[in-house]
Computed example of a mutant assay.
Amino acid sequence: MFKNIRFKRISIKKSSLKSFGFFLLFSSLIWFFVQISKEYTQVIDIPVSYVNIPMDKSISKEKPEHLQLRIQDKGFAIWYYKIFRPEIKLDLGRAIEESGELVYNFEANREYLEEQVNINFEKARFIQETLAIKFQPKKKKLVKVAPRIRLNYAVGYSAGEAVTLRPDSVQVSGPGDIIDTLQTLRTRELQINNINSNVSGKVKIDTSNLGMLSFYTNEVAYSQKVEKFTEGSVSVPVAIRNLPENTNITIFPKKVLVYFQVNLRQYEMVEADNFKVVCDFNDIHEGDDFIIARIVDSPSFVRNLRLNERKIQFVIKR
């Protein structure tokens, strides 16, 4: 009987403890919700980043990374902003230039800021009315762009001209010491294979290692006209340059074949008289029995020139 009574007392104590804990937790929650439902006034830090920086200006590195906002609102609203810390993007394109500073007025941009952070500015105010950021003017320059575009043509196709870029120069701004040394920009590498028709497109400018500079455009358009090409050959006599007086020289062969590539439209325009192949007497050294022939003149619209024979045998007669 004694054991039963003791067991009953212990059960009552455990039950009471659970009940007490439940009511304590419940009352704590009620107290918490009552507290966060009250209005408070508190200053919170909001992270800030800067966008739309004017291309001709370099802003100071010593600029605020947080803005202080005084909020008078319910406790849960303040708690939300402290936990999730919404970021504000300050559009410096909306700032006013004054005495070497970009001045951003918070009240003038109130609606723009409200859209970003969903804060009712009837109950919140930035401690600062304006934000002034120092800047240095950038130097501007028009810089030539060189293509890094590799075009591999299908058999029988080629191009008579180099790749065209539009624009072929771009406006760049930045610190004067960097701008003054910048002579050329390059596109990113691009390769197109098996081409048998005109090509065109856009390619980015390579801005790697140029983080201090601002580019008014970061891509250019490229194009190239592709044509059907064919190969031909003509027989051209070999001439001797710098032949001393009273010196006779006999060469073999006296003519060589010049091979070339030309587009089909201009094939009929190619004649042997358009080419000139020479050997220079001054290139002959004692013991030599041949001299090297070179093409020194050819039409501007032919390409991939080569000779069937470059070593010309010779005999000198004094």
Results as ranks from 00 to 15, higher is better:
Ala95Leu: 08
Lys144Ile: 12
Arg125Glu: 08
Arg150Thr: 11
Val103Met: 07
Gly156Thr: 10
Gln128Cys: 08
Glu101Leu: 10
Lys138His: 09
Leu142Pro: 03
Ile195Lys: 01
Leu151Gly: 00
Ile96Cys: 06
Arg186Ala: 13
Glu107Phe: 10
Gln171Pro: 04
Phe135His: 04
Ile179Cys: 07
Val203Ala: 07
Asn198Phe: 08
Leu142Glu: 11
Glu219Gly: 03
Ser169Lys: 14
Phe126Leu: 05
Glu219Asn: 07
Val145Met: 04
Val163Phe: 06
Ile149Asp: 00
Glu129Val: 00
Gln128Trp: 09
Val199Thr: 06
Val170Met: 13
Phe106Leu: 06
Arg110Phe: 07
Thr187Cys: 08
Val199Tyr: 06
Asn209Ser: 10
Asn118Trp: 11
Ile178Lys: 15
Leu210Asn: 05
Arg150Asn: 11
Gln171Tyr: 11
Thr187Pro: 02
Leu190Asp: 05
Ala162Tyr: 10
Ser158Glu: 10
Leu142Ile: 06
Pro137Tyr: 10
Ile133Ala: 05
Asn152Ala: 08
Val103Leu: 07
Ser158Cys: 07
Asn198Val: 06
Glu114Ser: 15
Lys139Ala: 12
Lys134Ser: 08
Val117Asn: 01
Glu219Gln: 13
Thr130Ile: 04
Tyr104Pro: 01
Glu219Ile: 00
Ser208Val: 09
Asn198Ser: 14
Ser169Trp: 09
Arg125Phe: 08
Ala162Phe: 10
Ser214Cys: 08
Ile205Asp: 01
Gln183Cys: 03
Ala154Leu: 12
Ala146Trp: 05
Pro147Thr: 02
Ala162Trp: 09
Lys134Val: 03
Val163Gln: 03
Ala108Trp: 09
Asn118Ser: 12
Arg94Gly: 02
Glu111Gly: 06
Pro86Thr: 11
Thr217Ala: 03
Ser200Asn: 15
Leu151Trp: 00
Leu182Trp: 09
Asp91Lys: 04
Gln136Asn: 06
Asn218Asp: 11
Val145Tyr: 00
Ile133Glu: 04
Ile119Gly: 02
Lys144Thr: 11
Asn198Asp: 15
Lys134Arg: 07
Ser197Ala: 14
Leu210Cys: 07
Gly176Met: 12
